[in-house]
Computed example of a mutant assay.
Amino acid sequence: MTVLITERLLLRDWTDSPADLDRIFDIYSRDEVVRWLGVASGLPLTEPAQAADRLALWRDRHADHGDRYGTWAMQERRTGLVVGSLLLKPLPGPDESVPTDDIEVGWHLHPDSWGHGYATEAARAVLAREFATGTREVYAVVSPGNEPSMAVARRLGMTHVGQRTDWYGGELLETFVRRADD
Rank of each mutant, 00 (worst) to 15 (best):
M1W: 10
M1D: 13
I5F: 08
R8D: 06
L9A: 09
L11S: 11
L11D: 14
R12T: 10
D13S: 12
D13E: 14
T15A: 09
D16C: 04
D16N: 13
D16H: 14
S17T: 15
A19Y: 11
D20M: 07
D20L: 08
D20N: 10
D22K: 14
I24C: 04
I24V: 14
F25N: 09
I27M: 14
Y28R: 08
S29F: 12
D31F: 13
R35K: 14
W36N: 13
V39P: 13
A49Q: 15
A49C: 12
A51M: 12
A52P: 11
D53I: 12
D60Y: 04
H62R: 00
A63S: 12
G66E: 01
D67E: 15
Y69T: 00
G70F: 01
W72Q: 04
A73I: 05
M74P: 00
M74L: 15
R77K: 12
R78T: 15
T79E: 02
G80W: 07
L81F: 12
V82N: 08
V83I: 06
K89H: 15
P90E: 10
V98C: 07
D102F: 04
D102P: 00
V105G: 10
H110T: 07
H110Q: 09
P111V: 12
D112A: 14
W114C: 06
G117D: 01
T120R: 09
T120C: 03
E121G: 01
E121C: 00
A122H: 03
A125I: 02
A125L: 05
A128H: 07
A128N: 08
F131Y: 02
G134M: 09
V138W: 01
Y139S: 03
A140E: 03
V141C: 13
V141G: 06
V141M: 05
V142A: 05
N146L: 02
P148I: 13
S149F: 01
M150F: 03
A151V: 02
A153T: 03
L156I: 00
G157T: 03
H160G: 06
H160K: 08
V161N: 03
G162P: 07
T165P: 00
Y168H: 12
G169R: 08
G169T: 09
G169L: 07
G170E: 08
E171R: 11
E171T: 15
L172N: 10
L172K: 13
E174T: 10
F176C: 06
F176P: 01
F176H: 13
R178Q: 06
R179Y: 01
D182T: 10
